[in-house]
Amino acid sequence: MSTSSSIAKQQETEVRNGSTKPNLKPVNPKPQLRQKKIKKILQNWQLYLFVLPSFLYFIIFHYIPMYGLQIAFKDFIPALGIWGSEWVGFEHFIRFFESYYFWDLLKNTLVINLYELVVGFPLPIILALLLNEVKDGIYKRSVQTVTYAPHFISVVVMAGMIIAFLSPATGIINHFIEFLGFEPIRFLADPDWFKSVFVLSGVWQNTGWGTIIYLAALAGVDMQQHEAAIVDGATRLQRIWYINIPALVPTMIILLILNIGNFLAVGFEKILLLQNPLNLESSNVIATFVYTSGLLEAQYSFAAAVGLFNAVINAALLIAVNQIAKKRSETSLW
C-alpha cells in the first residue's frame, strides 16, 4: 500500500470506485451518473472533514509503519534513516530461522496459544449456556456482575496478583498446597508450570466477560422452538443440545476466526510481565523476543524481520481459517 497518497488522489479513487459499482459496465460510466456522484461528494464535503482525523491517524500510525517494515530487508542504521540504509535481502530472516532459539520460540508461541484456545474458548460458551438456564433475578445478576469484573483488572495488577498468590514462601496458593500436605511449588521458576499459570489466570480473568456475546445470541433464540420442544417432551439438556448450541454456532465461528487472527500477538503483555530467567525456556514467545531483541538490544532490523515473520504467519492463519469456515459453514468474516 502506498503511503504517500494524498487526499486528492484518494478521492479520485473513490470517484472511480463509486461510479463503476452501480452500473455493471465499467468501461464507459454514464456521464450523468458521474455528475451525480460528484454532486454528492460536493454536497457532503464536510463528511470528509469528519473522517480526516482518523484517516490521518491510520495513515501515520499504521500505514507508515507498514512502509517502515522494509527495514526488515535492510541493515537499518538510525543515522542513515530508513531510505539510506543498505538492502540486505533475507539475511535477517535466515539468521532468525537458523538460530538455535527459533524452534523454541515457535513452539512456545504455538503451544501457549493453542493451549489458551482449547481451554479458554469453550468455557465462556458453557458458562453462557448454563447462565441462560437460570431465571432472571438476583442470583443470575450477581454471577454476571462478579464474573465480568476481573476483565477490568489491568495486566500489571493481574501479573502482581499471580506473583503474589503463587509465591513459594508467602503465597496463598502454596499455603493451601502445604495445608494439604504437599511441598510448595515454585510455579514461576518452573518452566513446566509457566504455560498453565498463564492460561488459567487468563481463564479466571476473561471467561465471564466472554459470555456476554453468547448470552446476546441466546437471547435471540426463538422461544417458540423451546415451547414446541417442551410439548414434545424434550428435557432441558436436549433443548440446550439441539436448540441453543446450534444457535451459537455462527457466533462461535466468528469469534474463533477473530481469535486466530490475533493468534500470535495476544497475551504478550502479560507474558512479558511474568517472564524471568528461570522460566524463559517456556515463556519466550516471538512477540516478547521482538521486544527484547529490538527495543532492549536495539537490533531494529533483525527484530522487525522477526515481527514481520510473525505477522505473515498470522495473516496466513487468518485467511486459511476464514476460507475453511466459508466452505464448511457459510459463516465467515468476508
Binding site: E14, H62, P65, L69, G261, G307
Partner: peptide, 23 residues
C-alpha cells in the same frame, strides 16, 4: 462516497500492521 474504501483501509490494520519496531 468512499465509505467502502475507507472502511477497508481502516479494517485492514486490524489484521496486518507494521508491528512493534517500525511503530
Amino acid at each position: 462516497v468512499g465509505r467502502g474504501f475507507l472502511t477497508g483501509l481502516f479494517v485492514l490494520t486490524m489484521f496486518f500492521s507494521g508491528g512493534l519496531i517500525p511503530t
